[in-house]
């Protein structure tokens, strides 16, 4: 079953990656077209025409949205290429940054800030990148499910002695009891998180405060 799922994920990734290339081409054409309009404006800088300021503002808006589209497409492309090589060596700092980008939209809907607190050096592990991203994403979702609005979720990859850890914790703005979410392990997603971590040869723990999830991974899934 897992082998079958891996083939499906690889297929999904391949198709998605192909389309991200197409989107990049579209963005490139829009960027050059708006760039050409900017160039023309620049060479006619001294000539006034009606609504010139609105024209400039609109161009600026287009360029900002191209940048936004490019950032999203870049991360989607990276995600789509995740199943290309599995297991493979990944940096937990980079994985945390990537998942924060992927979960950004969901968090924004609840006014929650997602923040990475990277380790001061790379933390390399050999693992399944898709399953790891899913586990980190599930951890964020568990907190988001219980948050009404606001606060901060921090992903902190760490290497403590020989342990490779990502601490995901929810920092509430006000330490009011009413802000404390229900126990993490009662979440319907907790079982899925446990299964993902078992597949990765690691484990997941919660400290009982309902504000922290700790996932730990082996240095190599082959171990």
């Amino acid at each position: 079953m897992i082998e079958h799922n891996e083939k499906e994920v690889a297929f999904f990734g391949k198709i998605t990656a192909g389309f991200t290339h197409e989107i990049k081409n579209i963005l490139a054409i829009i960027k050059e077209s708006s760039g050409l309009l900017e160039d023309i404006l620049a060479v006619t800088e001294d000539e006034a025409f009606p609504h010139k300021d609105k024209f400039k503002k609109s161009l600026n808006r287009i360029l900002n949205q191209i940048q936004r589209g490019d950032d999203i497409t870049t991360h989607l492309n990276k995600f789509a290429h995740s199943p290309d090589h599995s297991p493979t060596r990944v940096d937990l700092n980079e994985m945390a940054e990537q998942v924060i980008f992927l979960a950004h939209r969901l968090a924004r809907l609840k006014n929650v800030d997602l923040v990475a607190s990277p380790h001061d050096a790379s933390i390399m592990v050999k693992t399944h990148p898709v399953a790891l991203q899913m586990a980190l994403f599930l951890s964020i979702e568990i907190f988001l499910d219980s948050i009404t609005s606001g606060g901060k979720i921090i992903l902190s990859p760490r290497k403590v002695r020989n342990k490779h850890i990502v601490r995901i914790h929810h920092e509430v703005a006000m330490p009011d009891v009413s802000h404390i979410p229900p126990a993490i392990s009662s979440s319907t997603r907790w079982k899925s998180l446990q299964e993902a971590m078992a597949y990765l040869g690691g484990m997941v723990e919660t400290d009982g405060t309902a504000l922290e999830i700790l996932i730990s991974l082996p240095e190599s899934i082959d171990e």
């Binding site: 081409n25 490139a28 054409i29 050059e32 077209s33 760039g35 050409l36 160039d39 060479v43």
Partner: peptide
Amino acid sequence: EEEFVTTLAERLEL
């Protein structure tokens, strides 16, 4: 991508 090369070419010519 023809629209890409023609527009970029125009910008470089400028």
